[in-house]
């Protein structure tokens, strides 16, 4: 179906592009939000990504699905915005925590929904943008590893390594945040 509309857009039918905007705006916003962690910035990222996609639609060769191609533009636009804001996308940050997933899970489960959201958001913001994005693309968007490889333009092994590191980083930061909260209460 997408290919029909791609042909229409390349033939000069502007209104045919509305099909893509309507179909992918939700997913594009979620992906943009995963990268920039800010609704206002995510809106700007989505707009710019769609405009770039419209400009470059003639270069779409069909090696991947249109959705993957568009999400790659969204992620690249998100990274560009982060760089402008001087937020590092990649950073070698090692977390040498002894993380026990079950303990973290138990502690967070005992909290109220709003508190849970606060700590999870804080953790995702503390994480490096690339790790946080890949973690969310895999667990929230439920994208396959192949799709993530194509979107992030990384090798399969690299994605697996980052995903493993991201999981460790997430639990490590969350545990640290929860401990900090606990000690401040005491």
């Amino acid at each position: 179906m997408d290919s029909i509309y791609i042909q229409k857009v390349t033939a000069g039918d502007i209104n045919a592009f509305e099909y893509f905007v309507e179909k992918y705006k939700g997913k594009a916003f979620s992906v943009a939000f995963s990268v920039v962690r800010d609704s206002t910035l995510a809106d700007d990222v989505v707009q710019d990504a769609f405009i770039n996609a419209y400009k470059k639609i003639e270069t779409f060769r069909g090696d991947s699905t249109f959705s993957t191609w568009l999400m790659r533009i969204v992620v690249n636009q998100g990274i560009k915005v982060l760089r402008k804001k001087k937020v590092q996308f990649e950073r070698s940050k090692e977390f040498a925590y002894e993380v026990i997933d079950s303990n973290v899970n138990e502690s967070i489960k005992s909290m109220q929904a709003k508190e849970q959201q606060f700590y999870i958001d804080k953790t995702l913001k503390t994480m490096t943008a690339r790790e946080a994005s890949i973690l969310q693309l895999f667990y929230l968007q439920e994208l396959s590893l192949k799709e993530i490889e194509e979107i992030m333009e990384l090798s399969a092994d690299h994605v697996k390594v980052i995903l493993h590191r991201a999981r460790k980083q997430f639990y490590g930061i969350l545990q640290k945040e929860l401990k900090h909260e606990l000690t401040s209460i005491i």
Partner: peptide, 26 residues
């Protein structure tokens, strides 16, 4: 477990109707 935790994170909301804004720009 991690998936459940991440689903609790804020999803963010768009401030306006993206379709009309994007189409106007196009």
């Amino acid at each position: 477990e991690l998936q459940k935790l991440l689903q609790k994170a804020s999803k963010g909301n768009s401030r306006f109707d993206l379709t009309s804004v994007i189409m106007n720009q196009v």
